[in-house]
Design a binder for these strands. Structure first.
Lengths: 340, 340
DNA sequence: TTGAAAGCGTTACCAA
DNA sequence: TTGGTAACGCTTTCAA
């Protein structure tokens, strides 16, 4: 078997904790002479001593692992830049701080949210949380620091949240379309994001501003893989613009429009969300709301790390922060005045 | 503090090990009556008992965590579908088996390859390994199962490897270009992949087949962000075709050609590698070698899991497997006969 | 069928 | 400045 700290101690003729102090810097009130330090290092090298990380994790109840939880996970899709961007932000915060990123949808999908808080992670980044009280409770009382990414204020009291300012974003979208002369607009979202707190929030914001601007509107649940445009662009439902939940979904709508011979933006204006590089590749190029995904992820992760490293009492008592990110509208080619 | 297994045992009036048996199924030679099982479960629920995962990891020396190591990691780039595809394959294998994916370039970049084998991971998927003997040794003798992804046969004896058949791929590429009439071809690779075992292997295969087909060739190290086409398309060096290490790099070359007013494929044919969705988005569409990245990653990960779950002696003695994946050439628009 | 005890490797505490 | 001892929570082994 591998050499343990005690083997090293014995071989060097010192105590185990002297070794621990020298090699790992533990124990503040302990001092080891330089000569002994040298000896210990030498012996450790000779014995090929390697600390057992599991033992240290156990002893310290600290793993240097942060769990990234996707409540609705469908894999990384090749054409959607969202996830890579988000993960980049997370890694940009974690790696320099010496943390490892753990990804584990399974642990949550099993309904075993508690399992995620069994000590294996020092903290949890909970992305795209859904709305259910069960989810909220299991994370709130899990005993491990949790930060939410893409959760609007109020979705889970007590849990810090980092989120796009969907309200402002939808106001900008509605105003843009209204100023172009659109009078009837549909909001399209597919079933999975419709379950998330952010999906609900964005939808509600859209409805509120549309109503406020006296614009007729509809909300349509759509399967993005094959959007049925006739559901909202028809005699009965003559929408001239569609606001999609995501760029990916907006892209599918553009394709469907092309297939159906509907001109964009003449007959139909389309707006996406994320303003990723994808928007430059569509035909026509997609008008979309920009949110700084990578930065949001980095900020959320850094905040989580401060929670991990501060005493629990500090963050429990200081109350949860909600950070809202301003989102501007990148106007490209897919929106224009309706031709009637 | 949280209830421990002993708290439960005491409250239920049984031994700790009975609780362990009932709740975790440990201890084969132990039997607990149904009545007691029920009682134990009930008490555990009442006390909100949650097993301490770190304690279990420590005791069992098993973490259900697989480490994915990127030796040369530059983040997930928005436009390169490779990494998402690869990670999808890994996750497709890990999650159903109940494993978590740990990502940790830092642990390796620190030169602390041993750290990766300190028990925190049950196994390591080592992607894009470089060639250095130090790397090879530290992984080979790390005491944890290791599988390499994208490493050609022979790069590290004793470590199972999953890799594209670069040899066959380059033969196909060279034959394709030769049959179109190209007489002078350059292989372009940028500095980072040039350090990896696969980069070297692919380059060598290219040279071998070019020589064999009596085609003039050059190998050029290029910074892909700004390829200097004059380095290989000029009076002195009249290459009519370029074989790039990756799609991303081929894309950069297409852009540079457009900027320089060089017609593709007329004046210059370009071939990529991966045949990802990216190839459909370039102008002209990119001819490229297809490798089944997601499947390779899934296979490699599944193999790693079998190593994790079998006794070490089994895989130590059975010798390392190398799986080579056949790669076909997807001919699109970026290759054609040279116009002279 | 059950229980008691030992031990995994590390680190904190206290006594020397 | 140092070293012994106990403890973290769980599981295995052995004895009843």
């Amino acid at each position: 078997m591998r050499a343990t700290i005690r083997d090293v101690a014995e071989a060097a003729g010192v105590s185990a904790m002297a070794v621990s102090k020298v090699l790992h810097g533990r124990g503040t009130n302990v001092r080891v002479s330089d000569a002994k330090s040298e000896l210990i290092r030498k012996v450790a090298r000779e014995l090929h001593y390697r600390p057992n990380q599991n033992a240290r994790n156990f002893r310290n109840q600290k793993t240097n692992l942060i769990g990234v939880v996707f409540q609705h996970f469908e894999g990384l899709t090749e054409d959607n830049p969202y996830l890579p961007q988000m993960l980049n932000g997370v890694m940009a915060a974690l790696f320099p701080a010496g943390y490892t990123m753990g990804i584990c949808p399974k642990l949550v999908l099993d309904g075993s949210a508690p399992a995620i808080a069994d000590g294996r992670f020092d903290g949890i980044l909970w992305t795209r949380p859904d709305f259910s009280q069960a989810s909220v409770d299991s994370f709130r009382y899990c005993g491990v620091p949790v930060v939410m990414l893409h959760a609007p204020p109020g979705s889970a009291e007590g849990i810090p949240a980092f989120c796009a300012n969907n309200d402002l974003a939808m106001e900008r979208v509605v105003d843009h379309l209204a100023s172009l002369g659109h009078k009837k607009i549909a909001f399209v979202i597919d079933p999975i994001p419709a379950l998330t707190a952010e999906g609900v929030s964005r939808k509600n914001a859209f409805c509120r501003y549309a109503k406020d601007r006296e614009i007729q509107f509809d909300v349509i649940l759509s399967d993005q893989s094959d959007p049925d445009l006739s559901a909202y662009v028809s005699q009965d439902r003559p929408h001239t613009a569609i606001v999609a939940y995501s760029d990916t979904q907006a892209g599918a709508i553009l394709k469907a429009a092309e297939a159906a011979g509907i001109r964009v933006p003449g007959e139909l204006s389309v707006v996406g969300f994320d303003s990723s590089s994808f928007c430059e590749r569509t035909q026509p190029k997609l008008t979309s709301v920009f949110q700084p995904v990578e930065q949001m992820a980095r900020d959320a992760t850094n905040y989580l790390l401060t929670m991990v490293n501060d005493a629990e009492s500090t963050w429990r008592e200081s109350g949860a922060v909600t950070s809202l990110y301003d989102c501007h509208l990148d106007i490209r080619e897919s929106t224009g005045p309706p031709t009637s």
